[in-house]
Amino acid sequence: MKNIRNKMKKSIVTFLLLFISVSVFSQEEDAREKEKALRTSTNLTWDGNKNLSENNFVQAEVDYRKAIAKSPENAAAPYNLGTAYYNNETYSEAFGRFKEAGEVATSKQEKHKAYHNMGNVFMKRKDYPKAVEAYKEALRNDPTDDETRYNLALAKEMQKKEEEENKDKNDDNKDQQDQEDKKDQNQDKDKEGDNKEDQNQDNKDQGEDGNEGDKGDEKKDENKEGDGDEKEEQKKKPEQGDQPNEQQERKPNQLSKQQVENLLRAMQNAEKQVQEKIDAKKVKGAKVKNEKDW
């Protein structure tokens, strides 16, 4: 029984030693593979630097991309590729590569360079607030870099200037908007005044039309009354057919009424003349009495 226990202990120890050996071997193998990949990546980076110095940008870009794919730990490859993009003014690609280099960098110096160049990209884009933050991060990794310090001061100055310009622009826009609003209000008031005048004129015209209508109605009433009076007069007058026609009723060899009246008037005048002659003779024969005054 005791022998069995000893054998089991030996087996467990042997298994543990074997497991540790395999793990150590695997780690060493992984380390060797990473080291090998890093050497290959570094060599590709050198090739890219050489092609870039010979102005062969296309081949340099290929070498840098291969170096990045071979070993993510090689911060120099994305940094150098970002620099190539920056010099070609491809700032979006440059920023992406500088950011990648800053993330994989293990030393403060590498991080400082990556963030410094990110600040330069933001300055080219005129994104001054982000440039300020990038330069600050670069100085955290290397506070002694005067170039980064100068760029930070310049970025702050440009940011301040931009804010002042935006403030002035906003003030101008506000003043312009206020003027436009005031102009619109004045136009609305003028429009309301015109509408009010038009309404008053319409009311005035309607009043005049009403007065003319009343006058017309009065004239109509007068004409109507006149027509009524004329009709009444016509009713009172006998119709022509009802009036006696003297000429039609007069018999042959018979004097008319007018002729009879004229004849009687002539006879009366003759009698009057005779009487006047008789009276005149009487007056001539009579004596004149002398009347005395008292």
Rank of each mutant, 00 (worst) to 15 (best):
D229G: 05
Y64W: 05
D63Y: 06
T14L: 14
I4R: 13
V104Q: 02
V132Q: 02
S256V: 00
T45R: 07
E61V: 01
D293S: 10
W294A: 12
A131S: 07
E239P: 05
E249D: 09
S21R: 01
K124S: 02
D30I: 13
E249H: 13
N51I: 00
G207V: 02
K182A: 12
T40P: 00
D171W: 09
Q234N: 13
K10I: 09
D293I: 06
E61R: 13
Y91C: 04
R97K: 10
K34V: 02
G193R: 15
L263T: 08
A37G: 02
A101E: 01
R97M: 15
L16Q: 11
K282V: 06
E93W: 02
R265E: 15
L44M: 08
E246N: 08
K284N: 01
Q240T: 07
E103I: 09
K111C: 03
D168N: 15
Y135H: 11
E28F: 01
K272A: 12
F57D: 11
N170A: 15
R265M: 15
N43E: 11
K257L: 02
H116C: 05
N56Q: 06
N195C: 02
E164P: 00
E225N: 09
D171E: 15
L263C: 04
A84F: 06
K161F: 10
K189T: 12
L264R: 11
G102D: 03
G213M: 06
E180H: 09
D190W: 06
D47K: 05
D181F: 04
N195T: 00
P72L: 08
K126Y: 09
K220N: 13
D198M: 10
E29K: 13
L17A: 13
E276Q: 07
E100A: 11
N166Y: 01
E246R: 05
D175F: 09
I12F: 07
